[in-house]
């Protein structure tokens, strides 16, 4: 293992700010970021990454690899929840198993964005269509998760499928990322240059700020996880690692570049803590949000951004 990659990643400002947020909470500092600012940071990051992706797609041509990658992304996002559900069902009730399955079938945009920052620091290229893949992987798991909860529970309550589909397909992050991608794709080169300070220069600063906020949010949930630490740790790391490694295998079969392969592996191995919890709160309110949100945010998210990114990149570098 090339430890320089781990150290390079650990000492990057976004990861250090994440650690600062966790440390500040654990040391009982009064550091706090207003929730509206946290929301602004996340909207900014989605918009900036969408625009960047759109600019990049404009410069590339539609090819077989792009289409295969997008199709594989949807397939992985729709099938992962089935595997997660049947693994969890032996230990948890149908509602909790379905909500966690949806969480781990969907993706974490911030993990993806942190990986992009890592690739840019290394000077490794990636393609803009990976951002489209990310947007496409947000929703299928929500629909599958609700289907599983409905099928395996004894509840007679019916699901409002129309509302659920609206929530899954038109949730704010999906709309913003796909909209920004399209706007970036349509923007002429003059506008692309004019937007560069917004999409590039500010990007890392906002990412640091957002990860500071996420560090605080992660640390706040450590105590909640104590009750279910065993399953949370085993599944939160074990399943993420398994799906991340499976993502590398898929990326190899798809003949993706190193940069694209890392992003694909992280999309497969990450878990949602924004879009899915919001949808599950409506569609499967019986599921325990105190379990599936901290599992994703406090265990899988730091595992991926601290160890997953350099580990997967190292494996990709030695495999092809």
């Amino acid at each position: 293992m090339d430890y320089s990659l781990v150290i390079h990643n650990l000492l990057s400002p976004p990861i250090l700010f994440y650690s600062l947020g966790m440390g500040a909470f654990l040391l009982r500092s009064d550091l706090e970021i207003p929730s509206t600012l946290g929301k602004l940071f996340s909207l900014y990051l989605l918009m900036a990454i969408g625009l960047k992706g759109g600019f990049s797609i404009q410069q590339s041509t539609l090819d077989g690899t792009m289409i295969k990658t997008l199709a594989a992304s949807i397939l992985v996002a729709a099938s992962t929840p089935f595997l997660a559900f049947y693994l969890l069902r032996t230990r948890l009730g149908a509602y909790d198993a379905a909500a966690i399955a949806a969480t781990y079938g969907s993706i974490s945009a911030v993990t993806f964005i942190t990986a992009i920052s890592f690739l840019e620091k290394l000077g490794t290229e990636y393609d803009g269509y990976m951002i489209a893949a990310m947007a496409l992987m947000e929703s299928p798991a929500i629909i599958v998760g609700v289907f599983l909860a409905n099928r395996h529970s004894k509840s007679t309550g019916s699901v409002e499928w129309k509302s659920l589909l609206q929530e899954a397909l038109l949730n704010g992050s999906v709309v913003l990322i796909l909209g920004s991608l399209l706007i970036g794709y349509l923007a002429d080169t003059e506008y692309q240059a004019a937007l560069k300070p917004f999409t590039s220069d500010l990007f890392k600063g906002f990412l640091c700020f957002f990860l500071l906020d996420m560090g605080l949010a992660s640390a706040r949930r450590i105590r909640v996880l104590r009750k279910s630490a065993r399953i949370a740790l085993t599944f939160g790391i074990g399943f993420a690692l398994f799906t991340g490694l499976a993502g590398i295998a898929f990326a190899y079969l798809l003949n993706l570049s190193h940069g694209n392969a890392l992003l694909f592996a992280l999309l497969c191995g990450s878990a949602s803590y924004i879009a899915v919890p919001a949808a599950m709160r409506i569609a499967v309110p019986q599921a325990n949000a105190s379990l599936y949100v901290p599992m994703s945010l406090t265990i899988t998210f730091p595992f991926n951004i601290i160890l997953g990114i350099p580990l997967y990149y190292y494996l990709i570098s030695i495999i092809w």
Binding site: S35, Y273, R281
Partner: peptide, 21 residues
């Protein structure tokens, strides 16, 4: 944006999503 504590535990309201508030 009301936060507090109830049967489902502490509602932190600190995520950029409609959860916990």
């Amino acid at each position: 944006e009301a936060i507090g504590k109830g049967r489902s535990g502490i509602q932190q309201g600190d995520l950029p999503a409609d959860v916990g508030r």
